[in-house]
Each structure stands twice: as C-alpha cells, then as structure tokens.
Computed example of a mutant assay.
Amino acid sequence: MALAGVLFQAVTRNPLAEPRILGVSAGASFGVVLAIAVFGVSTLAGYVWFGIAGALFAGMLAFAVANRTREGASPVTLTLVGAALDAGLGAIVYALLSIDARTFEEYRFWVVGGLTGRDVGSAWPVRCCRSCWPGCCWPRSPPGAWTRSPSATTWHAGWATGSPWSGWPPAAGECC
C-alpha cells in the first residue's frame, strides 16, 4: 500500500495525491454500482474487475481532461479535475443507489463487508487474522476500562484503580 501511495504521488507530482482526491475511488465505486445495476453481477470477482475498470477509467479521464488545459497535467489541475470527477461520479453512484433497492443492498454488502452467504474459503483469511494478530480485537474494551460514575449518569475511564490496560491486548485465543 505504501509503495502504491508513493507511486501515485510521484506520477502526479503531488505530495497530497490520493485516490479520493483524484477521483479514482469514485471511479471504482461507479464501476461496481454499474456492474450490479446494469449487468447483474453478484460475485466478488465481478466486483473486483468492474472496480478496477472503473478506477482505471476515472484515472485516465482525470489525466485526459487535465492535459487539455493550458498548464497541462499540473498537480493543481489534476487535483481540481479529480475533485470534480469525484463529485460527479459520486452523484451518479448515489443516484443509481437511490433508484434501485437491490443495487443498494448489494453495494452496501460489498462496501461494509460480511461473510453471510460466503463459503469457508472466503472466511479463512479473517479467522487467521483474528487468531494470529490480537490487534484485530482491539475495538472491544479491555476488562475494567469503563466503570459507572458515582452519580450514575455518566461513564468515565477507570484509571483510579490502576491501569485497565494491564494484560491488554488479550492472548490470541481469547478474542475469538
């Protein structure tokens, strides 16, 4: 990921360049929504290929439009074109999602993620991550981290009785 970010910033000559600013993220979303709404794609592989195609389309469109200006594809021009492309494709995506409930449900499931309706082969990376890296479990509060205040109206961190983070993170088997 870091290498991709460095390449993105080097090619655009912009230290702040990232996929959202240049419209590439909106292009990927547009590709997935188009695949679901128009072509009826409902597989993860289909989402990935249409997402890649949409991202490539948006990136090439941003560079093509930026090159047509007087300054050429300067960092500022690329950023402005990318922001406009992000807004335009985002509007199309949300319009398509608001029209068709099935498309919205499929897209929501893809964006949020989940293992419902997936086979065991899809679940093993998640299980492996949760078993081997306890950091995956950190959103759960450690034991004793939150205690009821005497007024019983607010919650506060329980630092008075020692650190609630002792023994945290849990061992690999405890979080799953």
Rank of each mutant, 00 (worst) to 15 (best):
Thr116Leu: 13
Pro164Tyr: 01
Gly173Met: 01
Ala87Asp: 05
Ile92Arg: 03
Pro125Val: 08
Tyr94His: 10
Ile99Phe: 14
Pro164Glu: 01
Gly144Trp: 03
Phe50Trp: 13
Val33Met: 00
Trp124Gly: 03
Leu34Glu: 02
Arg68Asn: 07
Ala35Trp: 03
Arg130Met: 10
Glu18Phe: 10
Thr103Gln: 06
Phe104Asn: 13
Gly31Pro: 04
Ser42Lys: 07
Ala2Ser: 11
Ala152Arg: 12
Gly121Asp: 09
Ala26Asp: 01
Ser149Tyr: 03
Ala53Pro: 03
Arg127Phe: 11
Gly40Arg: 06
Leu78Ala: 07
Arg20Phe: 14
Arg118Thr: 15
Val111Cys: 14
Thr12Glu: 09
Ser74Met: 10
Cys136Ser: 13
Ser122Tyr: 12
Thr103Pro: 09
Pro134Asn: 12
Ala157Lys: 11
Pro170Lys: 04
Ala10Thr: 02
Leu44Gly: 06
Cys128Pro: 01
Gly173His: 04
Trp168His: 08
Phe39Gly: 00
Ala152Tyr: 06
Val93Trp: 00
Ser163Gln: 10
Asp86Phe: 12
Ala152Ser: 09
Arg68Trp: 06
Ala37Gly: 11
Pro143Glu: 02
Leu115Thr: 08
Pro15Ser: 02
Thr154Val: 08
Ser131Val: 05
Val76Lys: 12
Gly135Pro: 00
Thr147His: 13
Gly40Phe: 05
Ser149Gly: 08
Ile92Trp: 13
Ala58Val: 13
Pro139Trp: 04
Gly167Leu: 05
Thr154Lys: 07
Phe104Val: 04
Leu89Ser: 11
Tyr94Cys: 00
Glu174Thr: 10
Thr79Tyr: 07
Ala4Leu: 15
Pro75Cys: 00
Gly88Cys: 14
Arg148Cys: 05
Val38Gln: 06
Glu105Asp: 15
Trp49His: 10
Val32His: 02
Thr153Val: 00
Leu89Tyr: 11
Arg20Thr: 15
Gly54Phe: 01
Pro75Arg: 05
Glu18Ala: 11
Ala62Thr: 15
Asn14Lys: 13
Trp110Lys: 03
Glu105Ala: 14
Trp159Ile: 05
Ala157Gln: 09
Ala172Arg: 14
Gly54Lys: 03
Val6Asn: 01
Gly27Val: 03
Ser98Leu: 07
Ala53Phe: 01
Thr153Ala: 00
Ser74Leu: 07
Gly158His: 12
Gly113Leu: 00
Phe50Glu: 05
Arg108Phe: 01
Pro169Asp: 08
Thr161Gln: 12
Tyr107Trp: 14
Thr43Arg: 05
Leu22Thr: 11
Leu22Phe: 15
Arg127Gly: 04
Leu96Lys: 08
Trp168Asn: 09
Asp119Leu: 03
Ala157Cys: 09
Gly46Thr: 01
Gly54Pro: 07
Val38Lys: 09
Val11Ser: 13
Leu3Arg: 06
Ala64Tyr: 09
Val81His: 03
Phe50Asp: 05
Ile36Pro: 00
Ala64Cys: 05
Asp86Gln: 15
Ala87Gly: 13
Leu96Val: 06
Ala62Ser: 14
Gly173Phe: 03
Ala4Gln: 13
Phe39Pro: 02
Ser29Asn: 14
Ala83Ile: 15
Val65Glu: 10
Ala53Thr: 02
Val65Gly: 07
Glu106Cys: 02
Leu85Trp: 00
Val33Asn: 01
Ser29Gln: 13
Leu34Asp: 01
Val11Tyr: 12
Val126Ala: 12
Gly158Pro: 04
Ala35Arg: 05
Ala17Cys: 11
Ala84Met: 10
Pro142Gly: 00
Glu105Met: 04
Met60Asp: 06
Cys176His: 00
Ser166Arg: 12
Ala91Pro: 04
Ala87Trp: 10
Leu44Tyr: 10
